[in-house]
Every structure is written in structure tokens, then in C-alpha cells.
């Protein structure tokens, strides 16, 4: 009897913990920074900041290639407030499929080439304080 009650309590704890994890994650996604202002794209490889590119509206598209250790390459395109990996020599191509990003919600990560592209808010035109 105690054994039976024990496992039901454990199950209830696990269910509560999983529900908390789910709602926490959903809240984190929905309350994450949405599109406003302009951003700066930071390109990291092996944890080292390679380049910071301000993404402003109205820039004409241009491309460049990032070559990492061991000769792995990612071709990056910058256009109108967005940045993407256009082509890469990694096996899974998930970074290419992710397409253009224009907010801080989700960075582009290419795990095989250890490349991370993250946007951060351009602090110059972000509001100094928020009034509610």
C-alpha cells in the first residue's frame, strides 16, 4: 500500500515538474525580445567574436565567407536588417535552413562548424528606460 502511494506521489511530482518546465519554456519564448529597433549581429566561431555587423534598414545585400579552423566555411548574407547563412559545408545544413533572422529570439548555430550568429540590440537607439 505504501509502495503504491509512493509511486503515485512520485508520478505527480514528475508531472508537476514537467508542466512547470513546459510553461516556463513557453513563457520564455513568448516574452523573449520581439522585433523593435535595430540590431547588431555578432559572429562567433569557437567562442571568439569574429565580426560585429550593424544591421540597418536599407542596406543593399552583400555576402562574405567565414572560414574556420580546419577549413570549414559558412557563406553569410546580410540584407535589410536581417542576416543568414546562405551556404555552408557542414553535413546537416540546419544553419542554412534556418534562413534569415531579424530578432534576438534565436541565434543561428552551426554546430559542425562551431559558428554562432547572435543579434543584440543596438544600444544607441534603444530606449534608456521604460515607463509603464
Amino acid at each position: 500500500m505504501t509502495k503504491k502511494r509512493n509511486y503515485k506521489i512520485t508520478a505527480a511530482f514528475i508531472i508537476i515538474a514537467l508542466c512547470l518546465a513546459l510553461t516556463g519554456s513557453l513563457l520564455a519564448i513568448f516574452y523573449a525580445d520581439s522585433d523593435h529597433g535595430t540590431y547588431i549581429a555578432d559572429i562567433y566561431q569557437d567562442g571568439v567574436l569574429l565580426q560585429s555587423i550593424p544591421l540597418s534598414e536599407g542596406t543593399s545585400p552583400y555576402r562574405f565567407t567565414v572560414t574556420g579552423e580546419g577549413g570549414c566555411t559558412n557563406e553569410i548574407e546580410v540584407r535589410d536588417g536581417a542576416i543568414a547563412v546562405i551556404s555552408a559545408d557542414c553535413p546537416d545544413k540546419l544553419c542554412v535552413h534556418q534562413g534569415f533572422i531579424s530578432n534576438t529570439r534565436l541565434p543561428i548555430v552551426c554546430l559542425p562548424n562551431r559558428l554562432v550568429i547572435r543579434l543584440r540590440e543596438n544600444s544607441c537607439d534603444a530606449p534608456d528606460a521604460l515607463a509603464y
Binding site: 520564455a28 548555430v109 554546430l111
Partner: peptide
């Protein structure tokens, strides 16, 4: 593992997505 390999804290932005998909 991804954090150790890329050694950039940026991968933790994936945490909510991975938690939901994992569950």
C-alpha cells in the same frame, strides 16, 4: 555538449525550444 564545443553561451537561447521538444 553544444555549449562545450562552441564555447559560446548563445546556444542556451535554444533551451526553451529543446525543453518543449524533448518533453
Amino acid at each position: 555538449t553544444a555549449f562545450v564545443i562552441t564555447s559560446s553561451a548563445g546556444v542556451f537561447a535554444y533551451t526553451p525550444y529543446l525543453v518543449i521538444s524533448g518533453i
